[in-house]
Design a binder for these strands. Structure first.
Lengths: 342, 342
DNA sequence: AACAATTTGAGGTACGTCAATCAAATGATC
DNA sequence: GATCATTTGATTGACGTACCTCAAATTGTT
C-alpha cells in the first residue's frame, strides 16, 4: 500500500488538484462546504503530506539564532558544540543555525544581543536565559517583531517565550536529594549545598527541590545553608577547601552549579575523597573523570544534544504554525554513576 | 549561503551532470581519474546530498520485519507499542514496518519465524534474540539470503547479525550493584538476586555485572545465589514470598528480569516494604507505581523507543550501504528514582 | 436577465535528485 | 587510420508538493 498523494485526495473528494491544494495550505477562495469535503476525503484516503517533497517544493529556509554564554563553563561549551553539530545535521532540512556568545550571567549583554536580532536575517531564537526584567522585556519586544524564542537550559518564566527546552530543575534537585539522602546513612551528619548564582532560574529551582526532599524525607540529616560559588572554579575551590576544614562531620556535598573543577581540586587536596559523598551536575569531562575515580558518587545530567534538537523542533514547528507535542519535548533528568556513563 | 547542488559540483568539476550523478551514485562507466575529480569538486563546494529530494526521486521502499516475544511481559508490550508508533513515524521516509510475535523464550518458534521470512517481502529484520544454536543458524541462513538482521534488547553474539540495538547489560548489572550497594549500608546484610531465564543473553550478563561489582566493591554484603523467576509474575511472587519469610536479614533485592508484579505483590503482603531495598528493570506502569509509592528504590531502564529507532536507522543504513556511526547508536542505561521519572 | 463576485478547474513551472536513453567524443588496438 | 569499446555529454521524465496564472463555472445581487 503506497502512500496516498494529493491526487488521491482530489479524486476521492471529486474536486481538482488546485482546490485540494488550496484547502491543504489554507489558501483563501474555497467554500467551507468544499473545505470539509476535501478534509473528509483526506482523512478517508489516509493522506499525510510528504514533508520531504513539501520542503523541497517550498523553498522555505529556517535561519535560527542561538545565544549561549561565553566563558570556560564546560557544560556551556558542550552545549555550543552540540549546537554546531546540530547545525550540520539540520542543514539537510533547510535549517540554518548561527551561534553567538555573550558573557555569562550578564543580563545587559544578553538584552543587547536580543535587541540586535534582525528579523530579516533570523526567523527564530533559542537562548540561555538570565532571569532579569530587561531580558524579559527584550524577549517581549522580539516576539512583537515576529521572532519566536525558546529558552534553553535555564528558563525565563512569565515572558513571551514560546517554550522552555530544558529539564524540570525542581525535580532535578529532588532527585539529587533522593540519592544523597540514601548514600549518607548515619544520622546527624552534615550536608552542604553549593550553588552558582541564584539569579539563574535553574539554580534556584534545584536548590528548592533539593531542600524540600531533604526536609521531608531525610530530616535526620543536617543541611547547611547554601553557599554561592558563582559558577567559578577558583572561588568554588576556596569555598570547598574552607568548608572541608571547618566541618569534619561533613558527609555529603551537592554542587548544583558549575565549577566542578574547583570541587575536585579541593577534595583531592583535603584527602577526604570518598568520605564526603559528592553529587554534581552535568557530565562534563571533569565530572566524568571524577566519577571514574570515585571522587563523585553521581552526576545529574541534562543532555545538551537533546535540548538543542528539541529547541530546533519546537522553533520549526512554530514557524510552520504546527503544534508542538509537549509530551515529546520533555527533557529527561539523567543520573550517571560510574558504570552507566555513556 | 544556499546549499550547493549537483549542478554546482558539475560546474566545479568541469564535467556534465550525468557524470556527477554516475560518480555520486557509484554507477559504472567512469574513469577513476574523473571519479576523483568529481569527488574533489564535491568536497570543494561542500556538497551534501539533499536526502529529501533523493528519497523522493528514487522510489526505494524499505519494508522491515520486527519479531518480538508474545505474552504479558509489560516491557515487551511497550516495545511492540513503540515499534508500531515508529512504523507510522517512519512511513514518511518510505520505511514500512511489520510486526510478528512469537512465544517468549521459545527458540524453535523463533527459528521458524526467521526461516519464514520472504526476502521479496521484507528487506531487513529486527528481533529479540533467544541465545540458542538453531536461532544462530537461522540468522546465518537469513543473511545468506541477503536479509540483514539486528538484535533488539537481547543479543545473539557470534552470529551474522549486523548490530545489537540494546544496552550493555553487563554495565546495567554493574550499575544496579553500585546503587544497591550504596543503599544498604549496614554490613553483614543479605542481598538477593532474582533473574528470569539465563538462556536470555541479557539476563546472564546483568547477573555477572552485578555480582562482579558486589564482590569487588561491597564485599561486606552477603549476596545470595541467584534465583530464577522465569519472567513470570506468579512464580516470582511465590519465590519472593518464601525468600522474605526465610530471610529476615534480607536488606536488598535485585530483580534483573521481568515479573515485577510478583515482586510487588509479595512485598506488599510481607509488610517489609521499605525495609528491603528493591532495584528492578524496565520502567513499566507497575514499576512506575512501585517507585511512586516507595516500594522500589530505583529502576534501571532501557528506552524501548530509542532501541526501535536505532534498529530502523541501522537497518536502513545497511540497505543503503552506508556506514553506521556506532557511537551514535549506543543505547543508554537510564536510572529512574521517584523524582526523575519521565 | 444581466452583472459582478466568488469559487473552481486546468495547466504549468519549480524544487534537487535519480534513472534512463541516445548521441558524441575519446581511447586503445591492430 | 579504421574499428571497436569505453567514457562522457545532453536531455528527458519522473517523484510529491507548492504556488502561480488564466479561464470557466457557479453563485449571489439587483
Amino acid at each position: 500500500m503506497p502512500r496516498s498523494t494529493v491526487h488521491d485526495v482530489a479524486r476521492a473528494a471529486g474536486v481538482s488538484l488546485a482546490t485540494v491544494d488550496r484547502v491543504l495550505n489554507r489558501r483563501p477562495g474555497v467554500r467551507s462546504q468544499t473545505i470539509s469535503k476535501v478534509e473528509a476525503a483526506a482523512l478517508a484516503v489516509n493522506y499525510s503530506r510528504d514533508v520531504a517533497a513539501a520542503n523541497l517544493a517550498r523553498r522555505r529556509e529556517y535561519p535560527m539564532l542561538f545565544i549561549v554564554p561565553s566563558g570556560s563553563n564546560s557544560f556551556m561549551r558542550g552545549l555550543e558544540r552540540e549546537i554546531r553539530r546540530g547545525a550540520s545535521q539540520f542543514a539537510a532540512e533547510r535549517i540554518h543555525i548561527d551561534v553567538v556568545t555573550v558573557p555569562a550571567m550578564d543580563a545587559d549583554a544578553l538584552t543587547r544581543a536580543i535587541d540586535r536580532i534582525d528579523p530579516a536575517v533570523h526567523d527564530a531564537l533559542a537562548f540561555v536565559a538570565v532571569d532579569a526584567p530587561q531580558v524579559r522585556a527584550a524577549i517581549n519586544r522580539l516576539s512583537k517583531r515576529g521572532v519566536p524564542a525558546v529558552t534553553l537550559v535555564s528558563d525565563l518564566p512569565a515572558s513571551s517565550r514560546v517554550h522552555y527546552c530544558g529539564v524540570d530543575n525542581v525535580r532535578a534537585g529532588r532527585t539529587a536529594a533522593g540519592l544523597l539522602g540514601r548514600f549518607v546513612s548515619p544520622p546527624g551528619t552534615q550536608i552542604a549545598i553549593l550553588s552558582g548564582s541564584l539569579r539563574l532560574n535553574d539554580h534556584a529551582e534545584r536548590k528548592s527541590g533539593f531542600e524540600a526532599v531533604m526536609t521531608a524525607e531525610f530530616p535526620h540529616l543536617d543541611v547547611l545553608p547554601a553557599m554561592q560559588g558563582n559558577d567559578d572554579s577558583d572561588l568554588t575551590e576556596t569555598i570547598v577547601t574552607q568548608l572541608l576544614s571547618e566541618r569534619p562531620e561533613l558527609a555529603g556535598l551537592y554542587n548544583l552549579g558549575a565549577g566542578n573543577r574547583g570541587v575536585i581540586r579541593a577534595l583531592r587536596k583535603s584527602g577526604r575523597a570518598g568520605m564526603v559523598k559528592v553529587i554534581a551536575h552535568e557530565l562534563t569531562d571533569h565530572a566524568r573523570e571524577a566519577l571514574e575515580t570515585g571522587l563523585f558518587e553521581a552526576v545529574i545530567n541534562q543532555d545538551a544534544g537533546r535540548q538543542v534538537r528539541s529547541a530546533v523542533r519546537v522553533l520549526k514547528a512554530q514557524l510552520d504554525e504546527r503544534p508542538v507535542i509537549a509530551d515529546q519535548e520533555r527533557i529527561r533528568i539523567d543520573i550517571f554513576l560510574r558504570d552507566n556513563m555513556p
